[in-house]
Amino acid sequence: MPNAFSPDTPPPALSPAQQELFVRELNAAHALLLRYAMSLVGNRHDGEDVLQRASVIMWRRFGEFEPGTDFVAWATTVVFYEARNFQRVAGHCRLKFDDDLMKTLAAERAQHVRQWPARVTALQACVEKLEPMQRNLVEEIYTRGVEAAELARQEGRAVQTIYNKLNFIRRALAECVQRSLTETHL
């Protein structure tokens, strides 16, 4: 792994071809990198934050990337360091992952995450099996981006009630996706 990446690194003078390559590679890897970041910081919001910071660093350091080599491997390294920095900044992250655990997660996740498309396909089939009320909740929280607290306020419920329902749905989906992948040997 390279040394820690710094956002203070001066921006490179990338050629138009390099700029084009960067955009293409980053866009193609975006969904994978978000998943990778999320598993290191524990939630989507922080994962997006980390990926956004890492993207800027990648842009600044892209001159060091060798075309034809594995962009995902290079990018996940950048995201890893950014996630570790994120964890270290007080108040940024509630997780208490030490360096050993971060490295373990990063090493396993780097391979695991490359199969994410198959898991999305399984997830879609599992979502279809949810009850209508559960699908509505998924739509509010994930598709429309309504915060659980706001939804609770709108419905006159305690936020914990929303969380309890979400927890049940996440567990059901995790088990369903896992069953599906096991059946298809993925």
């Binding site: 969904a31 978000l34 998943r35 999320m38 598993s39 939630n43 989507r44 994962g47 396993e108 996740r109 695991h112 995450v113 994410w116 898991r119 999305v120 997830l123 879609q124 979502v127 279809e128 949810l130 699908r135 509505n136 998924v138 739509e139 929280i141 994930y142 598709t143 981006g145 996440r170 989906l173 995790a174 996706v177 896992q178």
Partner: peptide, 16 residues
């Protein structure tokens, strides 16, 4: 890892 894949995937799926 699966929890986080699902979390990301749910935000990308069509309206359930």
């Amino acid at each position: 890892f699966l929890y986080h894949d699902n979390e990301a995937g749910l935000a990308e799926l069509p309206s359930p």
